[in-house]
Design a protein around this nucleic acid. Structure first.
Lengths: 143, 143
DNA sequence: ATTAACCTTTACGTTAACGTTAGATATGTT
DNA sequence: AACATATCTAACGTTAACGTAAAGGTTAAT
């Protein structure tokens, strides 16, 4: 019946990570420590799995190191926190922090934009090469 | 007067790599060995620099490992070779090779496409976060 | 009740991609 | 000619991101 706690192997299967990697991510503080059962077994929530999936995606797709990811996550969490804390009462110092957060975000956005443009170029080159090959076959059929 | 040979430090400056990295890339076969002076000093051509710059770009932007890059480069070189060799006389076995090249290219293209889509999603998320922050400031100005 | 299959921590091993140091030449400058 | 610089090879060092093995405890099933 009590079905909602997930052990580490379930998490591993859902994220594609190994159990070792998951523990390692926790060890270096990339993800926060999950709840434990009375005997010490790690129990994960669905939310934590989604967080891990995000990590995996950002790592594999963006090619970020775990250190870089840590900064992203930190950014993300601070924003979440701010959103809760200062909904009605953003003090004057906090506004400065918000500005800095925004600047950090813009930097990251530009960086991704830059990467995407370069990737587009690269893709274009590959497509041109492939076009030449298929052109060759087409030409041959007209023999 | 003889100005056209570039020593390794020049290459390092133009590519942003270290001398060690350049020798290492040669060592693992990522780039081919350049000419040497009589006494053994590596002498690079402009073409080789451009090749290295491509490597740097692909590594940093695409987040590829040197192993993955090796496959890309191999692909690229084989295509170049084929283009010279079989312009008029593509034997029957070679046509099979061409097909395989094309398949390899398409895989890589799809892979890049996949990456770009995920990056787009990621970028969107960051932009939404940033939007919330700037929205907050805008709202405040209407106080 | 004894396997089998999990979980845990601890700790040493591994691979990629270089960094660093050493020792021997080479080149360029005054 | 001497001196600072740069180049070479060879070899050991380093860091990140885990892999793997050992030793022990728990739970599930036969």
């Amino acid at each position: 019946m009590t079905e909602s706690f997930l052990k580490i192997e379930d998490v591993a299967k859902e994220t594609g990570l190994t159990k070792r990697a998951i523990r390692y991510y926790e060890e270096i503080g990339l993800i926060s420590a999950p709840q434990r059962s009375e005997r010490g077994t790690r129990l994960y929530t669905q939310e934590e799995i989604e967080k891990l999936n995000k990590v995996v995606l950002a790592k594999e797709v963006l090619g970020f190191s775990l250190q870089e990811l840590q900064q992203f996550i930190q950014l993300d969490e601070e924003i979440e926190k701010r959103r809760r804390d200062y909904r009605q009462a953003p003090g004057p110092k906090k506004r400065e922090e918000l500005h800095q957060l925004s600047e950090g975000l813009e930097k990251q956005i530009n960086f991704i934009q830059y990467k995407m443009e370069k990737m587009q170029n690269f893709k274009h080159e590959l497509e041109e090469l492939n076009q030449r090959i298929t052109d060759f076959f087409r030409q041959e059929r007209q023999d």
